[in-house]
Structure formats: C-alpha cells, structure tokens
Amino acid sequence: MDFVINALPLYWEGALLTIRLTLFGAVLAFVLAVVVGTLGTVRNRTARAVAMVYTEVFRGVAALVLLYWFGYSFVEITGFRLTTEFAAILALGLNIGAYGAEVVRSSINAVPRAQTEAAVALNMTWWRRTRLVVFPQAWAQMLPTFGNLVIELMKATAIVSILGLTDLTKVANDFRASAVADTFTVYAVALVGYFLFAQVLIVLVRLLERRANRKLGRPTDDSLLGLLRPPSIGTTTGGAR
C-alpha cells in the first residue's frame, strides 16, 4: 500500500501523457472522420473513391505498425524526423479516424431521404442541408459508436510505451523492471487507472448523447446510473443498414 501511495505521482505523470495522446488523437480522428465520412456520401465518384481508399488503408493496418512506420520509416524516405509523440498522434488519429469515417458515412446515409427532400423543397443548398438538417440527426446516431471508438483510442495509446514514451503503461513497466514492488500491484494500479479514465470518457459521451437526443425531441434516460452504462457494441459494421 505504501508503494501505491508513494508511486501515485509518477503514475499520474504517465497518465498525463496517456490523456494528452487520447485527446489530440481524438481531435484528429474526429476531424478526419467527419470530412472523409461526409465525402463518402457525395455523388462525385472521385471524392467517394478517395474516402474509400483512406478508410480501407488506415482501418486495414494495425495502429502499432502505423506507429513504427511514422516513427522509423518516415524519416528514411523524407529525411524529416517526427517526434514519437507526434507520430503516435498521427498513427492513432489516422487509424481511429478511418473507423470513425465509416460511422459518419453510414449515419448520414441512415437519415431518411425524405428529410433531404423536405430541405430541397425549402430550396436549401447542399451545405445547409448537410449542416442543418442531415448532420444533427446523424450526430445522435454516431455518438454511441464514437464513445466506443474513443475508448479504443485510449487503450491503443499504450503502444507508445513500446517506443519508449513514458505513459501510464511505461511507468508500470519501469516499476516492474526496478523490482520496487510485486508485478501484480504494479500493473493493477495502471489497469485501474485506464479503467477510471474509460469511465470518465463513457460519462462524457453519455452527456453528449443526452443533449443530442433532447435536441431531436427524443426521450432521454436522465438517471445518474444511466451515465455509467457503457455504450453497447454495434452488431453491424458501418455500411449495411
């Protein structure tokens, strides 16, 4: 127990990197997901092809492989060295962004066509239709899956420990290597840290979901316990609906 109390500040330092990577990775992934996902719904074939190539490539390659590529191979062909942290944000953002793009695309396609037609009848431009009518409705549908993705992203940040960055995982690895405490305690603390972080993320996404559903005039579960209910995992990939 003494070990845990004394070691907490160091764990916290590691956790800060984990949080930072999750945050920046999520921002990058979100932007990519919205842009590429929307591209996937337009009529222009070239735009759709670009969106498809991006999603297939970055969903297909493991985040760790991407990280090695950006961390080590990138400098060999460009002569430009990325910091490991930046490489990690790129790898994670591109990877999760590709999953997110599928979610955005299928959610937009799931908004009833009649909604677009009503917007055309009001003579709205494509941009206004998408921004004011289609996206707000798709948003409520995206959120639960985004919740799962941000947790996947958070978990995936642990890979930076393999490249020597001091995140929550690396702190635990170092403690174990220095044998200051037993293996079980050292890793249990790290795992609990990740678990708590995940719970915070779940609550945040739940709050966003409630807001989105309220805006659509849908009933929301306003209980406190409802906030902690983890989002259920989708049973289909994007696409098929």
Binding site: T169, N173, Y194, I202
Partner: peptide, 21 residues
C-alpha cells in the same frame, strides 16, 4: 468483462507475461 474491455490489451499482455515469467 467491462474492466477487461476498457483497459489496454497490451498492458494485460505484459502483465500476464510478467506474472508467468
């Protein structure tokens, strides 16, 4: 299962690997 699902599999790997060293 929630605990296992919301924590990194990488940490779980090194954890069990170290325990069974």
């Amino acid at each position: 299962t929630e605990f296992i699902r919301t924590t990194p599999v990488l940490v779980q790997l090194v954890f069990i690997f170290s325990l069974s060293a």
